[in-house]
Simulated scan of single mutants.
Amino acid sequence: MIDQDYDIRWLSWTGMETHMIFNLGVELPGFASFPLLETDRGRALLRKLYGDQIAVAQETGCGASLESVTWMANADRAAALGYDAERLARVNRDAIAFLREFEAEVPLRLSAQIGPRGDGYEAGSMTADAAQAYHARQIAVLAESGCDMISAFTIGSVDEAIGMVRAAMAVGVPITMALTVETDGRLPDGTNLNDAIMRIDADTSEGVKHYLVNCAHPDHLALETAGVRLSGLVANASRLSHAELDEAEVLDDGNPEELGQQIGALARTYPQMRIFGGCCGTDMRHLRAIGQSVHG
């Protein structure tokens, strides 16, 4: 895999949806961006946004981790949008094929993004076995499509994370596990970040290739000993809690320069961290500041 080069710092962006909704006025029913793949206009917009990310990565000397638009493309969440199993499998395959169209002078990584079964801000109640069975279909389709890795973002339950990891291991595809934390540094299920990582590692024989934190501001991290196992941070622009963000009618884009400086400080403190980027409320200003700072 191309991300074996330890010198590469990867720039990831999972803030595409909030950018489209609040800054570009794009309607995304159910917060789902994968339906954009089914129209020429939608594909043109996605091509522009991925192109912007690649350009910033090139400008700042980073590789670009392109996250597929499949965070919402699992059975329960897609059913509400009228997608049956066959149509859903097709759009998951199309999402990876779309990423394969991009070329750049910087390294590109095709990251097949998956999300929780339910709300990304809530813990959920599945057992690990149930989570493995539920997520196995989407993970298998994405793996067959030729992605470089599965990336599970905004995961707030240890049990669901374990099930996702087991499903990825069953089809032999590497998985990045991006856990989210509340303002107290704990997952929505109440687990301390370090304890969550230890439990996932113990139950999967260290099956996670990379651990990240995403959908949280750097101020919310309580790294303790978890920092030595983390490979990076894909941060929110805002310091607001998940509950406050869920109720917000206006985008809080924070302070891009300050966010970049905070993430740059993390990169220097924890040199094993190689994956950085922006989640809710971020755009190219934030990515540029982050990319510049992690090389500072």
Rank of each mutant, 00 (worst) to 15 (best):
L287Y: 10
V106H: 02
R274Y: 08
W13G: 04
Q272D: 11
R117Q: 13
F102G: 07
I96F: 06
A140Q: 14
S145Y: 10
P107Q: 05
L179E: 01
G146V: 01
F98S: 12
E103I: 07
E38M: 09
D84C: 09
Y50A: 06
P271G: 10
D159V: 06
I275V: 14
V228G: 00
H217C: 14
E101V: 03
G281F: 09
L24M: 15
G118Q: 07
F34I: 01
L240D: 14
T180G: 07
G118H: 07
E244I: 00
E122D: 10
R47E: 14
D253A: 11
A104G: 06
L88I: 09
R239L: 09
Q132V: 03
L11T: 11
V165Y: 12
P271H: 10
A79V: 07
N192L: 03
N236H: 03
S293H: 12
G277D: 08
A75R: 15
I263N: 01
A95I: 10
G254E: 08
R229A: 13
G291L: 13
I21S: 02
D52M: 10
D84N: 14
N194R: 09
M72S: 15
A143G: 13
A161G: 15
N236E: 10
A123M: 06
R274A: 14
T18P: 05
L245V: 05
D253V: 09
W10C: 07
P116G: 04
D40N: 11
G277K: 03
E67H: 11
G61I: 08
H135P: 01
A104C: 05
T269Q: 15
F276C: 09
I155S: 02
T39P: 12
E160I: 03
G291N: 12
C147R: 05
R239P: 01
S68Y: 10
A222L: 11
L223S: 07
A79I: 09
R186I: 06
T18E: 11
A196I: 04
G264F: 09
E103Q: 14
T154G: 07
A161N: 04
A170D: 15
V250N: 02
D252P: 11
R43C: 08
M198I: 13
G227P: 07
T154M: 13
T180N: 15
R268F: 12
N255L: 04
F276G: 12
F98I: 13
T191I: 00
E122K: 13
E38A: 09
Q262L: 14
A237F: 03
I21G: 04
V69N: 08
I8D: 06
P188Q: 06
R109D: 00
T60C: 14
G30K: 05
L187T: 04
E182I: 00
P35Y: 02
A178Y: 02
T154Y: 03
N255F: 10
A267C: 08
C279G: 01
A123L: 04
L24E: 15
A143Y: 00
M273Y: 12
G115P: 08
I139L: 11
L212S: 11
M1G: 14
V208P: 01
I139K: 08
Q113R: 10
G207W: 01
A168E: 06
G227E: 02
M20F: 12
Y83V: 07
L179W: 05
L110N: 02
I8L: 08
A235H: 05
D7L: 11
M20V: 09
Q272C: 06
